[in-house]
Nucleic acid binder design. Sequence first.
RNA 1: CGCGGGGUAGAGCAGUUCGGUAGCUCGUCGGGCUCAUAACCCGGAGGUCGAGGGUUCAAGUCCCUCCCCCGCAA
Length: 315
Amino acid sequence: MRVVFLGTPEFGVPSLRALKEAGYNVVGVFTQPDRPKGRGNKMLPSPVKECALSYGIPVFQPLKIRVDGVEDLRSLKPDLCVTAAFGQILSQEILDIPTIGTVNVHSSLLPKYRGSAPINWAIAEGETVTGVTTMMTDRGLDTGDILLKKEVEILPGETAEELTARMAPIGAELLIETIRRIEAGNCPRIKQDETEATYYPMLKKEMGDIDWRLPAEKIVCLVRGLTPWPGTSFVWGEGETVKVWKAEVAENPGMTPGSIIASDAKRGLVIAAGENAVRIIELQAPGGKRMQAVDYLRGHPAAWQRCEMKEERHG
RNA sequence: CGCGGGGUAGAGCAGUUCGGUAGCUCGUCGGGCUCAUAACCCGGAGGUCGAGGGUUCAAGUCCCUCCCCCGCAA
């Protein structure tokens, strides 16, 4: 069976690797073009590209696969296409190429959390269980028929980064099982229940702006869900943006949201929220690296003076 | 060469403008006080100031080169 894999970030790597190790004939890999990344704008290949090259699989990086990737894909004569966090929308023309169809590995329990950032959103919404779903890709956004699902528990305090790393191999395993059952002709295939469906948008930088009027519980979940990107932050005093890496719910003696309840090395950094308060455990100041909040306070003994929070940030 | 911030004791920082004995908070070690404590008091250890070169009587500080870390941009 000729398989073409489409994926970009780290999440897809275990799936690609699993296909190879299960002995499938991966005849080509599509991934996002190398883009200038990081300091100095160095061009960096995607994790999936690196993995593909290590296996000697031909790599294709069309800017828009539905425009300039169609012929390449067709020439590979795939029986099956597999997508895992590819990052581009497939056209019907593309979907029609593989004879069996296109299987997508999606990191939520569909039809919940459709969209490009299901793991982040599941955590941000305070879920305790999520999962991976394999589905037949169709024209819609994560709307295709469900093949197999596997639940994954979200651990207390777990960040999107940690959970993604944990779910990627689970997705890979489910993918192989899915393909085996497709080959065997006994793979379930059920339509998604549209009444149960939820869609969540792409992550944007501004989503990480902390609104202290929200309940502390909500803010803490947002911090976990948006780690490491886009991250959560708030503005401290005179325009200094402080990034929050780790936080927990603390008690609020009744102070107004955004005011500082504590900021010393003994009690830590505690800020009042709409309900309860948020203790910031790990933070990152401009130009600095992430550090324990108490460490930051040691070097900035007057930090408490800059306590006017901007409460009217993004409504 | 995309833009910017930074590297000083185990941790976090000040000192660099204008060269002149290496400082602060915390931790750590020893001692003391207390029914007791994340409290308090006294004392000690711990630093090639990222690396190399240059200027100077004298460089953490001025000049040149390099290395490393971080933010923006996705």
